[in-house]
Simulated scan of single mutants.
Amino acid sequence: MAEPKSDEQFMEDIAAEMRGDIEPEDGVVELQDAPSPELDALIAERDELKDRFIRSLADLENTRKRADRDRREAENYGGTKLARDLLPVYDNLQRALDSAKESDKEQSAALLEGVELTMRELINVFKKHGIEPIVPEVGDRFDPQQHQAMFEAPVPGTKAGDIIQVMAQGFMIQDRLLRPAQVGVSSTPAS
């Protein structure tokens, strides 16, 4: 007498039979020559169960793919909120370094060195987590995908849409915009 099959083995055998990978087990008699209402009901029930089984397998595969996609997205973009909260810290450190005058640099050398080291460490942490700065230069073209126009002004010697001032750097996290660079844009009409 054969050992009873586990539920998993039973389901695998059914799936293999449906795909046509294996023949039905011995002892299974196909009664195609003698149609009867009971046989028709059993065939209909089998077909319904087969359809439900195939749909369940498809749902399981879709759920696995969705969970995998969600996991990857959480890895890549999970720190977005924290990164946005740290951007003002970066801005304040940058302002502190920019505002130090030449005369102050001699008197506050140790303090400025500490601020610079803190700034470098923050930049290293950003890079480690896929956060890259957007650093536009004066004269570059305005890109609405990466820049936010804070003002427009006519400036001689420039074309409309040229960046005339950079107020704050922007940042990308992986391939998404974390914060646009804040810039001033020329509105000089074409000659």
Rank of each mutant, 00 (worst) to 15 (best):
P35K: 09
D143E: 15
P156V: 04
V183C: 03
M1I: 01
R71F: 08
F151Y: 09
A2G: 02
E12V: 12
S6C: 06
I163Q: 00
P88M: 02
K65V: 01
A190Q: 09
T80E: 07
P180K: 01
F142L: 13
K159G: 05
T80L: 03
P136T: 00
D7R: 14
R141T: 10
P156G: 15
M1K: 05
A110W: 05
G78S: 08
R64L: 06
E116A: 12
K101F: 03
E121H: 12
D13N: 14
K127S: 15
P144Q: 10
I123F: 06
Q145L: 05
Q182H: 09
R64S: 03
D140W: 07
K5I: 13
S103Y: 14
Q146L: 15
K65S: 04
G79W: 04
G139Q: 03
L87M: 10
M150Y: 09
K128T: 09
L57E: 13
S56H: 15
L57H: 09
G139C: 08
I43H: 14
A96D: 00
I134G: 05
K127I: 07
L42V: 03
S99T: 12
R120I: 11
I173M: 07
K65F: 06
E61N: 07
L60Y: 13
L178Y: 05
G170R: 03
R69C: 01
R71V: 02
R176A: 00
N92T: 09
Y77G: 08
V125L: 08
R120W: 00
A149P: 03
R55H: 11
Y90F: 15
S103N: 10
D26A: 15
T158Y: 04
D68C: 04
D70V: 05
V166E: 02
Q174T: 01
E102Y: 10
E8G: 07
E12W: 07
A160T: 09
R72E: 08
V183N: 04
Q32G: 14
L57V: 13
E38K: 11
S99M: 12
T80C: 07
T80S: 06
N76K: 13
A160E: 10
Q146V: 13
V155H: 07
P144I: 09
Q145H: 07
D21H: 01
Q182C: 02
N76H: 10
S108C: 15
E121A: 15
R46D: 06
D51Q: 15
Q182S: 06
D51G: 14
S191E: 12
I43Y: 13
A44R: 12
D104V: 01
G184N: 03
G78R: 04
A2E: 07
G184T: 09
D70I: 01
D13V: 12
D21W: 01
P4K: 03
S187G: 06
R55W: 06
F142R: 04
A34M: 12
R69I: 03
D98N: 14
V155S: 09
S187K: 05
F10D: 08
S56W: 15
K128E: 15
Q148R: 07
E17N: 09
E17C: 11
T188G: 10
P144K: 10
I14F: 15
E8W: 02
K65N: 04
A58Q: 09
I131Y: 11
E38N: 11
L87I: 14
D13A: 15
I14P: 00
K65G: 06
Q146N: 08
T118M: 02
R52G: 04
R179G: 00
A181N: 09
E73F: 06
K65W: 01
G130L: 05
